[in-house]
Design a protein around this nucleic acid. Structure first.
Length: 263
DNA sequence: ATGGTGGATACTCCA
């Protein structure tokens, strides 16, 4: 059965309901994984997303920060809300849908200083990525039909950022973060789907920051949002699209959706 | 060397 699955860091689901409706009407994903919903689970706008065609909703949210959700047209089973780094800050939710295991992550951004000794946030990010790799190994992720999506807050490859040389010392593109990402890929034998379709050196970005007002116009982008699949799904890969147009809409999220189409 | 903007919150944190 075909399956269209999208991931999108919406930067507050309540601020982005109009964009969600527009995106869903245009791209019609069967499953939509959201990050940074910034709302407690009980206050999630379930009626609004049901009206968009998503009656199955799994939310792991809290007040103010972080938070993830899976919206689906099909029934979601075996819900999971794992805790990482011994703190429940709503960064992971997972479920089975259409015979596939979908894991939705929001990895810590890591603060500004790329040194785990000086910066606890960076240490937390590295530990989170290490735990993901350990989980992929011990749970034998590679043997299952699994999809890992979300805002992993790492642009691992040279052409995943607009200026590799300049940004190597910036959090999100340091060699140590790229090495952690490579260990996760190896641990789950994960296929980096966007790069499967569009290899380096072509640029691929999913995020353009707010702090430089011209970042999108100048294409100062980073590829922070990821779609990874295990080997049993390789033959079902049909297409992948990074939906840049949402970044041109009024009051956009700083991240754009990524849509995977499985045969 | 530094600041820029956006969202949630409540006199500030996080990205």
């Amino acid at each position: 059965m075909p399956l269209k699955i999208a991931t999108w860091n919406v930067n507050s689901v309540r601020q982005r309901l109009d964009h969600l409706a527009r995106f869903c009407a245009r791209y019609e994903p069967d499953v939509l994984c959201l990050q940074e919903i910034k709302v407690p689970s009980d206050d999630f706008p379930v009626a609004a997303v049901e009206a968009m065609g998503y009656p199955h909703v799994l939310v792991h949210g809290q007040k103010g920060y972080n938070g993830v959700a899976i919206l689906s047209r099909r029934r979601l089973t075996e819900p999971q809300k794992q805790i990482w780094c011994e703190r429940d800050d709503c960064r992971h939710v997972a479920a089975q849908v259409g015979g596939v295991e979908v894991h939705n992550f929001y990895v810590p951004a890591g603060g500004d200083v790329p040194d785990p000794e000086q910066n606890q946030k960076f240490a937390h990010k590295l530990q989170f990525l290490s735990e993901m790799a350990a989980w992929a190994t011990t749970d034998k992720l590679a043997t299952r039909k699994a999809i890992v999506v979300g805002d992993l807050n790492v642009a691992p490859l040279e052409h995943d950022v607009w200026n590799h040389k300049r940004l190597q010392r910036s959090v999100g593109h340091t060699p140590v973060e790229a090495a952690h990402m490579a260990r996760l890929w190896a641990a789950g034998e994960l296929i980096d789907v966007p790069r499967h379709f569009v290899p380096e050196p072509e640029e691929l970005y999913t995020w353009w920051g707010y702090r430089f007002p011209q970042s999108f116009a100048k294409n100062y982008g980073w590829r922070l949002d990821h779609v990874l699949v295990t080997p049993p799904l390789r033959k079902r890969l049909k297409s992948l699209e990074i939906v840049r147009e949402t970044r041109t809409w009024e009051r956009p999220s700083d991240h754009v959706p990524v849509v995977l189409h499985l045969k």
